[in-house]
Design a protein around this nucleic acid. Structure first.
Lengths: 239, 239
DNA sequence: TGATAAAATATTGTTAACAATTTTATTATT
DNA sequence: AATAATAAAATTGTTAACAATATTTTATCA
């Protein structure tokens, strides 16, 4: 009675899996704004039913990562310049509040943990693994939010983080995009360790304004091949 | 060839209609936290297909107005005390940022418009129409956000406003719930007119802390009759 | 009675078939 | 060749039937 499946481990993706895969693809700058997301194509790609994809697209639209037009399907969202500016301005507000809350509650172990995260980020950067460094840099901001302990602030920051790559890709050249600078992260952790709210906020604001100041219009990119862009990240691919 | 429909004007609700009806019911404190939301019941109530209801419930769950459990359906959410505190704390952050932005951009016409809103709110209150006064009070906060001109801040404030009634009903007695005091709204408009950011924020914070300080546990309420609670508000009822 | 098990009912979850619409390809006309 | 009209294909939207699961009711037994 040995396993008789021709195709081994035909495990399909769950709804949340698919959602996360697409979110991650946006986060990694693999999915360009404006890319058409066809239901059957995605369903085949992930080995799931179309209904599943349909639900995922609705959810993505709800968090403004996708634009849905009746009878014409879904495209990766292309935030306007205005939306980009509002997003960055709000991010400054949220990250400031996070720092304020965090510093009022921070303990030694928190600072230590942040220090270890900085190390990892720095190492990834030094060995030339910029993709990993970028991911760790995002994690750094997320971790600040988590440590602050306000679930709503955390939720909003995560929302902004998810939407930001689309702003950058739509209005900035890819190469223009400077990832978070490690030294600025270091300065923030230093300020937290000293419980210096004012400095922490100031550095964070500079940090964010630096990217924000670059938002301007740039020419379009051609639509890319979905199958290629979404393929091999994170969760294992079904046979 | 006269209209031969037995049931006249059998217009059904759209997905957005249904969504708004339920959101409004929450906002009006007509839907208690924990109320079971059965798909067929809602479908019959609104005269729509179950699939429509299904999508609406998913969207409501996404904005945390509803809790969905696999195979066990959807209930009106019951935010924890912690979530309530986080919501209020974040609201102070967001409303502060809104005031700051608004005052930096406010023009005479904005202040005039706010003044007229205060009048209407006051009149509703004086003639004893507290339900209307409450709605106008919510509108006041929304209008500040709209005038500030940051779509993301506006989005987040609206999110918080939608979720707040559930916190209040879950953890405060209904009668304990003091609606926004008109005089505090007046003080805020005064400060805006004087471009006094500091005072505006201070009054707003007092205003919000006043409600927040009351959050504490209180006994459950029995589940109520859905059909009754959702019936006759806003959009016309289909035959 | 009270507890447990079994059956019946109710509710949610999934899917495949079809309908409606849009997009692409083809043909006809100038 | 360009344009417009038509037909074909592709894509999205809807639904009803069924499957899976949970809940309630009834029956059984100590």
């Amino acid at each position: 009675m040995a396993t008789q499946n021709i195709k081994p481990d035909q495990t399909r993706f769950s709804e949340d899996d698919v959602l996360r895969q697409i979110e991650q693809a946006v986060l990694d700058h693999r999915l360009a704004p404006g890319t058409k997301l066809k239901e059957v194509q995605l369903a085949n790609l992930f080995g799931v039913k179309r209904g599943l994809i349909r639900k995922v697209l609705t959810r993505l639209a709800h968090s403004r990562l996708v634009d849905q037009t009746p009878n014409r399907g879904a495209k990766v969202a292309k935030p306007s310049v205005k939306e980009g500016q509002d997003l960055f301005a709000t991010r400054r507000v949220i990250e400031s509040a996070i720092l304020e809350t965090l510093i009022s509650r921070a303990e030694e172990q928190h600072v230590e943990r942040l220090g270890r995260m900085l190390d990892r980020e720095q190492k990834a950067y030094l060995r030339g693994d910029t993709e990993r460094a970028l991911a760790l840099s995002v994690d750094f901001h997320r971790e600040l939010a988590r440590m602050a302990g306000n679930s709503v602030l955390e939720e909003y920051l995560n929302d902004i983080i998810r939407r930001t790559p689309l702003v950058i890709l739509t209005h900035l050249g890819v190469d223009e995009h400077n990832r978070c600078r490690n030294q600025e992260h270091e300065a923030i952790v230093d300020a937290i360790a000293r419980r210096d709210v004012k400095t922490a906020k100031k550095v964070m604001n500079q940090h964010l304004l630096h990217i924000e100041s670059k938002i301007k219009h740039k020419p379009e990119k051609p639509p890319a091949d979905l199958a290629e862009l979404l393929r091999p990240h994170g969760v294992e691919q079904p046979a």
